[in-house]
Design a protein around this nucleic acid. Structure first.
Length: 510
RNA sequence: CGGGGUGUAGCUCAGCCUGGUAGAGCAUUAGCUUUGGGAGCUAAGGGUCGCGAGUUCGAAUCCCGCCGCCCCGACCA
């Protein structure tokens, strides 16, 4: 009997919805396409923010905050950019409401001369600031970041993976030349890769997006791609070299050492609350989430087996003292987050709540443990032995001494499991398009697990690339990226048979 | 935005075809029992049946319109 009513094997999308609800991470709000993020979900985001913010600052970026509303004219300045975002823009057109026949409406008298858009991303408004801030080569590089909410009017939303409003971090930088901007683009990508692997225990493949998948207005787009447990790829972060597209559109020029006016080269890069969806689909099991300890809002949860009797007080004291002792330890460079769940609820219910949330270590401490100076606990990553829940018992001092190791082991085990899955399911055994069809076309409904294909291609562009995209679409496939670390030699192009020039990953994707 | 499904108690759903004034399980609350682990018994509370307009003496049920959600498609930094 699992803690979730639905298993991954039965219905992966339903299982995903169940985990978001049952782990109490988020729920839908009355606002279409938007969610209420609850403490277990938001707490994970706070851990992500704290660590990623540290890494971003360490690499020389400062935090800024730009407005939510962007003058509509700004978005029109870069042609590809407006084309990419126009269809999903929320627009603010009025500044006042008025009751007309008892119905509240935007006051026709209060229409804005120039509407605002709610930011879908901030290249344009930040570019405008750059154009004023960048005067001399001495002002460069200019490296900033902001933590913000953005809005994209998506047709189809899924909690954490694609919502109309989401939270993210967006880095924006300006540089003297392409080489410097490309260094920055790759630096950001590497921050995302290492952060995802070290901190989220989510292995990824970093690489360059094909032309058709580039960010609107970008010269080059790079991504990190993670493999979910249904085999689909999730784009978990992107880093863009924007060339001089935005500089031209917004006049970001500096006086170089020779006294000439030169266009700056800009970059942008971001990760969002989508990472949380990735964590769920990487580490969840049929009992709920298994939260990596580094991002678990509570790493050790202590459930006292309260009985509504006088001896409860002594038991609570024992648990509080244990939590305090654990809180003095450190793990992943921070204080250990221990929590005593004293809520007036049945201990068994509390246990299963924390199992579904995926607290890494759940202690269940009864009067006999307290009297004997022991700690009984379950490990979320090794919850069962056969059908039965596996309970461990250690002397209190031994448990305290073991905690850091347990958390480290949990983090490592989650990473190792996901890494093994990723590596076992990327196949280079495809030589012709027929091979792809044989594998990916086998199930018509697209429901079964399908791994990724790593294939050589001749990197067609324009109409030839469109044709490739169409052929892949028929198999519900997309090109994810061209991984960094390319081989010395290539097989013939899987699409055309021409000489291969690059290896790419092909997969079904979110 | 197209195709399909769906919307009834906090959750999962029955009732709809064949109109008669709303149900089950779980959850909640109270009491009693139980206590090394997802407990039992008894009782209670809880629903404008997604919204609106029709047909009808009477609509959860039939008709029309709208909206949300889920799946597929299109779209998706």
């Amino acid at each position: 009997m699992h803690a979730l009513k639905i298993t991954r094997a039965e219905d992966f999308p339903e299982w995903y919805q169940a985990i978001v609800r049952e782990a109490d991470m988020a729920e839908l709000s009355p606002t279409r396409g938007c969610m209420i993020i609850k403490p277990w979900g938001y707490g994970i985001w706070e851990r992500i923010q704290a660590e990623l913010d540290r890494r971003i600052k360490e690499s020389g970026h400062d935090n800024y905050y730009f407005p939510l509303l962007i003058p509509m004219g700004f978005i029109a300045k870069e042609a590809d950019h407006v084309e990419g975002f126009a269809k999903e823009m929320a627009v603010v057109t009025h500044h006042r409401l008025k009751a007309v026949d008892g119905v509240l409406k935007p006051d026709p008298e209060a229409e804005l001369a120039e509407p605002f858009i709610i930011r879908p991303t901030s290249e344009t408004i930040i570019g405008d600031a750059f154009s004023r801030w960048v005067k001399s080569y001495r002002d460069l590089p200019l490296k900033l970041n902001q933590w913000a909410n953005v809005m994209r009017w998506e047709m189809r939303t899924r909690m954490f993976l694609r919502t109309a409003e989401f939270l993210w971090q967006e880095g924006h930088t300006a540089h003297v030349d392409e080489a410097d901007a490309m260094d920055e683009t790759m630096l950001a990508l590497e921050i995302y890769r290492s952060f995802s692997e070290d901190y989220l225990a989510m292995p990824v493949v970093a690489g360059e997006k094909p032309e058709n998948e580039r960010f609107p207005g970008a010269e080059k787009t790079f991504s990190i791609e993670a493999m979910m447990q249904d085999g689909k790829a999730l784009q978990a972060g992107t880093s863009h070299y924007l060339g001089t597209h935005f500089s031209e559109a917004q006049n970001i020029r500096y006086q170089d050492k020779e006294g000439g006016q030169t266009l700056a080269h800009t970059t942008s890069w971001g990760v969002s609350t989508r990472l949380i969806g990735g964590v769920i689909m990487t580490h969840g099991d049929d009992d709920g989430l298994r939260t990596p300890p580094a991002i678990a809002p509570r790493q050790i949860v202590i459930v006292p087996m309260l009985r509504g009797k006088p001896e409860d007080e002594a038991l609570k004291d024992y648990c509080a003292a244990l939590a305090q002792e654990l809180g003095a330890l450190t793990a992943f460079g921070e204080r250990v987050r221990a929590f005593v769940d004293t809520k007036d609820a049945k201990p068994a219910d509390k246990r299963w709540d924390w199992v579904r949330r995926g607290a890494p270590i759940i202690c269940e401490i009864g009067p006999r443990d307290a009297a004997g100076g022991q700690v009984s606990f379950i490990k979320r990553i090794a919850l069962r032995e056969g059908e039965k829940i596996k309970t461990h018992t250690l002397a209190r001092a031994d448990f305290v001494a073991a905690v850091q190791g347990l958390l480290d082991e949990t983090q490592s085990a989650l990473y190792a499991e996901a890494k093994a899955r990723l590596e076992a399911n990327i196949s280079g055994e495809f030589n012709t398009f027929a091979d792809l069809e044989a594998y990916f076309g086998a199930d018509e409904d697209g429901g079964g697990f399908k791994g990724w294909a790593r294939v050589s291609w001749s990197r067609p562009t324009g109409a030839a690339l469109d044709k490739v995209v169409e052929r892949l679409k028929a198999l519900k496939l997309t090109i994810r990226n061209a991984p960094l670390g390319q081989p010395a030699n290539y097989k013939p192009c899987i699409f055309t048979g021409a000489a291969g020039v690059e290896e790419i990953l092909i997969a079904r994707a979110y």
